[in-house]
Design a protein around this nucleic acid. Structure first.
Lengths: 215, 215
DNA sequence: TATTTGTTGTGACTTGCATCACGGAATATG
DNA sequence: CATATTCCGTGATGCAAGTCACAACAAATA
C-alpha cells in the first residue's frame, strides 16, 4: 500500500498523517463473508476501510443479527474509533460483504492524532456524525415503520451500495437481517412485484422501480 | 455561574478550559417541559447540561416522539457536539424534564478546543461513545423486544434517573414515548401488578420490584 | 441419474398490538 | 355543588406479522 493508494481513499488527510498511518498501521486483507469485529470483543485499535464493503450488525442475546448499515471505502467504524480510546468492548458485529482491505490503527495513535492532525480530528467527528445519523435512521425504521417499508429501504440500500438492480440475496437471509421471517419476506416480495416495483425470477430478484412500492 | 460550580459538574476539565467556557459560553435556564432542540433545527453550538435533566427523542414525520434516553448533568448532547462542526441539522428533539441550566458553546470553539484541550477532546469522544451505546440499546429494544419488556425498561430508567419508586407519568404519556397506545400500557401495567412488580394506585404507579416482571 | 440440499410459494393458525367504543373514577374549574 | 376534563379499565374487533406444515422447484453432489 503506497501513500498514493491511501490518499486516494482518504483525500482529506494531510501528507504527514498518511505517512504516519502507513508507518504504524497494520494492513489486513479480509475475505468476503469474514467477521471482523465480534459483539463483546475488546477493541484496542481503530479500523478504517481502505477497500471493499463492510456490513454492520447489532446482535441480540440469542444471536440474531439485525443489519444496521454499510461501511464504505474511506470510512471508519465509529465503534472502533470510540473504543480505541475508552476501555470499550464492541457492541456491534462487522462482516465483510466483499473482499476487503482494512487498516488497523493502534489505539494510542487514534488518541494522539486528534490533537496532532486537524484532518484526523475532523475525520473522527465526521465519522461519528455519519454513523450517528445512520443509527437514528435505523431507529426510525424499527420504531415507526412496518416491515414492507423496511424491506423497500433494505432493497434501496442494496441497490445504491452495489449499483445494481439485481438482488441475489436469499429471502431467508433478508429475513434474518430484518429480524423477520422468510415467509413474510416472500409475501411482501409478491406484493412488491404486483405493484411493479420488482420482478421475481425464482432464483433472484430484480428491481424495476422502488418508487412504485409506495402504492 | 462560577468556575467552582462548573468544575463541580465537569470535574475532568482543566482550569483554563473552564475559564474559557465561562468567557465564551452562554448560560441559559430552561423551564421544565421546554423544548431545547427541535428536529430539523440548524445547530451552530454545542449544548452542555450544567444542571437538571433532559430527555432526548426521535421524531417521525407525523410528529410522534419516540423517547430514546436521558441526558444528565455533566453530559453533552452528542448531536449538538457533532452538528456544531458540520453543517448539520438536528435529527433529535430535546426536552427539559426538570428546570435546567444549559451552557451553549459556539461551534467554532467546539472545534478549536479539540486540538487545544486534551480533556475536551476526551469529553467529546466520551460523549459520542456513551450516546452511541445508548442508541444501540434503543435499537436492541425496538428491534428485538416486545412492548412488555420495553415498558419495564422504561420504568427502570425512570427509577434510576429520579431515584424514586413513584412513577407519576400518565399511561397516555408513557404510551406516546414508547410509540404504543394507552390501552396497551394499561393492560401491561395490570400484568405487571399481577406479577407483583408494581402497584397501581389509580392516579400513579409505584414500583415494588421490577425483577418480578420477568415471569 | 438419483439424491440431497437450499430455495420459494402458500394456506392455516396464533399472537401482539392498535383501534374503537364504552363507562366509571378522580381531579380541576366554573 | 355542578360540570368539565383528564385519567384509567376493559371488551370487541381488525391487522401485521410470526409460526407451522407442506409442496414445488432448482442447483449441487454422489
Amino acid at each position: 500500500m503506497t501513500e498514493k493508494d491511501l490518499t486516494k481513499h482518504f483525500p482529506t488527510f494531510e501528507r504527514d498523517l498518511i505517512t504516519e498511518m502507513i508507518r504504524v498501521g497494520e494492513l489486513k486483507t479480509i475475505r468476503e463473508g469474514d467477521t471482523i469485529i465480534r459483539t463483546g470483543q475488546n477493541i484496542r485499535a481503530a479500523i478504517l476501510v481502505v477497500e471493499g464493503l463492510l456490513k454492520i450488525y447489532r446482535e441480540d442475546d440469542s444471536g440474531d443479527e439485525y443489519f444496521m448499515y454499510y461501511l464504505d471505502e474511506g470510512k471508519a467504524c465509529a465503534i472502533s474509533l470510540v473504543c480505541a480510546l475508552g476501555i470499550g468492548t464492541s457492541g456491534v458485529l462487522a462482516k465483510a460483504v466483499t473482499d476487503a482491505t482494512i487498516l488497523i490503527i493502534p489505539a494510542n495513535y487514534v488518541d494522539e492524532w486528534i490533537g496532532k492532525y486537524k484532518s484526523w480530528a475532523q475525520f473522527a467527528v465526521m465519522t461519528y456524525r455519519e454513523r450517528f445519523e445512520e443509527l437514528l435512521e435505523v431507529i426510525d425504521h424499527v420504531a415507526f415503520r412496518n416491515m414492507d417499508e423496511r424491506l423497500v429501504f433494505y432493497l434501496k440500500r442494496y441497490q445504491e451500495k452495489f449499483n445494481t438492480n439485481n438482488i441475489p440475496t436469499s429471502f431467508t437471509e433478508i429475513a434474518q437481517e430484518l429480524n423477520s421471517s422468510r415467509e413474510v419476506i416472500s409475501r411482501l416480495m409478491k406484493k412488491l412485484s404486483e405493484k411493479g416495483a420488482v420482478n421475481l425470477h425464482g432464483s433472484h430478484v430484480s428491481i424495476i422501480d422502488l418508487e412504485k412500492a409506495l402504492d
